[in-house]
Write a protein that binds this DNA or RNA. Sequence first.
RNA 1: GCGGAUGUAGUCUAGCGGUUAGGACUGAGGCUUCCCAAGCCUUAAGCCCGGGUUCGAAUCCCGGCAUCCGCACCA
Length: 569
Amino acid sequence: MPEPSEILSLAKRRGFLWPAYEIYGGVAGLFDYGPLGAEMKRNIEDYWRQLYVRQEGFLEITCPLLAPKEVFEASGHLKEFTDLVVQCDACSTSFRADHLAEGLHEQPSRLSKDELCMLLNDNNVVCPECGGHLCEPATFNLMFKTAIGAGAGGRDGYMRPETAQGMFVNFNMIYRYAREKLPVGAVQIGSSMRNEISPRQGVIRLREFNMMEAELFVHPDDKSWPNFANVKDEKLKLLPDGGKDTVTVALEKAVGDGMILNETLAYFMWLTWKFLSDLGVDPDRMRFRQHARTEMAHYASDCWDCEALLGYGWVELVGVADRGCYDVSAHLDHSGADLTAFERFDSPKMLTVDRIQPDLSKLGPIFKGKARAVADKLAEVPPDSVPDDRSEIELEVDGERLKVPSECFRKVRREEKVSGRKFVPHVIEPSYGLDRILYALLDHAYGSKEDYVRLRLSGKASPVKLGVFPLVGKDGLDTLALEIHRRISSLGVACYYDDSGSIGRRYARMDEIGTPFCVTLDYDTLKDDTVTLRDRDTAEQIRVKIDRLPEIALKIQENIAFEDLRRHS
RNA sequence: GCGGAUGUAGUCUAGCGGUUAGGACUGAGGCUUCCCAAGCCUUAAGCCCGGGUUCGAAUCCCGGCAUCCGCACCA
């Protein structure tokens, strides 16, 4: 297995990844994508779009990175994404306050700052390292805070720690766009930010990172998936919660046995497996690990991480979770917006309902300006709680207790037609770490033998698809090679022209950045319009007609194997 | 955030208080016109940042930043 330092060295040298702002000393957790990295990142994004947007019909949206505070009050990030940290005055060691309160309270992580502070003081908790005095707990939130707008009129804002919230808050728009049908999926590709305490491991833990997230809104009682039948016999490598070893199980069995919670979750786990292996993550170094109950976020009912074995150990590349109704409900509650789907009954139901009907002509003279508010409150009173002979109702309106005499309202019984019901959709979320996936592709593609480095990137992932060389830069070979380069480039295929140095050196340069094939023009080319096509992994060559090159170039993007090209040559 | 180690061209590295910081690879230009990092010539590029000690600092000391390894943290 290659050392991460070898890969990062190559990535820097050849223009995949650069430490950001390096001339100013760099910043931990920030990386630039160089030209090859940017190209490769886009290849990954494009294939993901191909699967999610084109094939599965998800709707791509793009939301701002910056969001107002309210979004994260609702999502729970402001509360849950915050750690309370205490520091020892004597030895300066930091501890999480809720960890120190372990055993003093049932759920210390749920306590507020003041409550925790009191709890620690009352119990005379001292530094576990040296017994020194501890300072007051300080909050550390992993979100980057900023102000939207200037001065006192400015509004508290945060940089999003995930792209998901943009899709949840837009559920009503997405649902309407989809003409009120479920399931409906939304996707978003973009960056998110977390102020990690200690970023490590190259691009594995970044402070600004790229995500490709999908949020599939489904009916809570129907988590089946139409395409599931087509893939039910496909197998996945699973490491279930509590299991010691991975098991290879067919999707249908995994769902049937209750190992994976539902069909939809299983389907997208399979799609993830296909996506990653097509791009070039080695299936032998890939697995799905189920989150333990304690590890799972409080809202999730099942969660599987797709992990790859890298130089750093097993690293999560993708998380596929059933988030239930948590997120949409949270935004519904905080915003008051109607983030529900509507389910039409087979036939409308006639219901007999009792209601309190306010009489505004009586309320007006008594309550004056408050009459409307009183009426609204009256309408919310459960009719069953009001006996028919009750002479008045006590209400709290805007913090004021009022007595409403019985002549101000009537209890009425009505027949109502109910044609369906509203419900909050559940969400299945496949969430992809783009930077980690790109790194995993480099890691699994990397091979070196006696200082000769070869990246066996897939045709889909490789930043350059084809190298084009004149064997010698004269006798018209160079101009013809440039002409071929231009023709292939105009198809939108990334190819690279090189006429400097020996031919071997040029092949070596392409091998090092993972270019699958190279074509070389020689003197035979001038006679019979053929070029040599060289395979990166074997260095074998075949001769092909120049006219076939555009077709071949396009097929490289579909991972065509050299053997297939040889067979048709 | 804590503890330890490290920081010299794009990469790898020599240097151990005293000339103009040396080499290899890579890059660029040329010769060679050649099918797997060949050879020759030319050329570009570096002491992480800031302070201190000293006649003199890449070298010693302090602070910062960054990287790596442990610990902690990690939706």
